[in-house]
C-alpha cells in the first residue's frame, strides 16, 4: 500500500481519542427490549438496553450464549422490531427498526456468500442492490482486493476459497456497503486461533484506514478487549447491559499487548462480571 495515495478512504489513520466526547452519537438506544413468544412461552431476550455509539468508535460486545447479542444486532440492522416503548435514534433521528434497513452495514456470523456468484460479484452485491451498475461497482471494488488479501481471487467462486478468505470476502462486502454504522457478528468465530489473531490486527488496520464505526459481537474476551475502544458486557437471559468498560490501550495495538498489565487488569474485570452472570444463570437452570 502506497502511503499518501490519492485513493478515497485511504487517509492517514486518526487516533480514536481524537473523537470529541461531545460529538453527537451515530446511534443511541434507550429502553430497548425484546420478548419472543406469548404467555408461558414468553422469553425475554433483551431488557432495557441503553447504549450510545459515537462516530468512529469500535465497540465490542461480549456475553454468554443466549444473552441476546444477535437480537440486538437484528434490531440495529432493521430485521427485527423492538418491543413498543423503545427509543432508537439513528443519526439524531428517532427511527423504527425497519427504517434502518439499508442504512446499517451488517455482517452476520456466517459469511453467507452466494455460491453462484464469483468473489467479486459477491463483494459488490450491496452496491448492486443500491442500484449501482455492475461496471461502476467493479471499479469501486477493484482497489480493495489487495487490501483484503484477495488479489488474484476475484474470479474464484466461494467454494474454491478457505474459510478465512471467505470471511474476508464477506468483510469486504460489508465495507463496500459504506454506512455510518457497521455491525459485525462474531466474524472470526469459525476461524482457527492463528488466522483469527491475524485477522484481528488486519481488521483494526482496515477500520482505521476507512474510519468506520463498528459494533462487534464476540464470545472471546481477549478479542473484545484487543479490538474495542469500549467493551460492553451483557448478561444472560434476559439480556441486559451489565458493564461498560473503556479500553484505554494505545493504538495501533500489536499482539504482545494481550500480556500487558493494563490488558490483564481489564480482562479480570470483564471475566469477573461474566463469571457472576454465568453462575447466576447456572443456578437458575438447576433451580439452586
Amino acid at each position: 500500500m502506497m502511503a499518501g495515495g490519492a485513493m478515497p478512504g485511504r487517509t492517514i489513520p486518526q487516533p480514536v481519542e481524537a473523537v470529541p466526547e461531545t460529538a453527537p452519537p451515530i446511534v443511541e438506544l434507550a429502553n430497548v427490549s425484546k420478548t419472543f413468544g406469548q404467555g408461558r412461552q414468553e422469553v425475554s431476550a433483551l431488557e432495557h438496553i441503553r447504549l450510545a455509539i459515537g462516530r468512529g468508535e469500535f465497540v465490542t460486545v461480549v456475553g454468554p450464549s443466549g444473552c441476546g447479542k444477535s437480537t440486538l444486532f437484528n434490531i440495529l440492522a432493521g430485521l427485527t422490531e423492538a418491543d413498543p416503548g423503545a427509543s432508537i435514534r439513528y443519526g439524531g433521528q428517532p427511527r423504527a427498526a425497519k427504517e434502518l434497513l439499508g442504512k446499517v452495514a451488517f455482517m452476520p456470523q456466517r459469511d453467507l456468500l452466494l455460491p453462484w456468484r464469483r468473489v467479486v460479484d459477491n463483494a459488490i452485491l450491496p452496491l448492486q442492490v443500491e442500484g449501482m451498475s455492475r461496471a461502476e461497482a467493479l471499479k469501486r471494488a477493484a482497489p480493495m482486493f489487495p487490501e483484503f488479501g484477495l488479489a488474484g481471487f476475484e474470479k474464484h467462486y466461494p467454494h474454491q476459497l478457505s474459510g478465512g478468505m471467505r470471511q474476508r470476502v464477506a468483510l469486504m462486502r460489508t465495507f463496500l456497503f459504506e454506512r455510518d454504522l457497521t455491525l459485525l457478528d462474531e466474524p472470526f468465530g469459525a476461524l482457527d486461533a492463528l488466522t483469527r489473531s491475524l485477522m484481528q490486527r488486519w481488521l483494526l488496520e482496515v477500520w482505521q484506514r476507512h474510519q468506520r464505526t463498528i459494533l462487534f459481537i464476540t464470545h472471546d474476551v481477549d478479542e473484545a478487549i484487543f479490538l474495542g475502544d469500549r467493551v460492553v458486557v451483557m448478561t444472560a437471559r434476559p439480556g441486559r447491559i451489565k458493564l461498560v468498560l473503556d479500553v484505554k490501550l494505545p493504538r495501533p495495538r500489536d499482539a504482545e499487548i494481550v500480556t500487558s498489565p493494563e490488558f490483564i487488569q481489564i480482562k479480570r474485570q470483564v471475566l469477573a462480571a461474566i463469571e457472576e452472570e454465568s453462575l447466576k444463570s447456572f443456578q437458575q437452570a438447576t433451580g439452586g
Partner: peptide, 14 residues
Amino acid sequence: VDPQRVALLRSFGA
C-alpha cells in the same frame, strides 16, 4: 431459501 441470506439482502435495503 436460506432465511439468513434473505435477511442479509434485506439489510442491504433489497
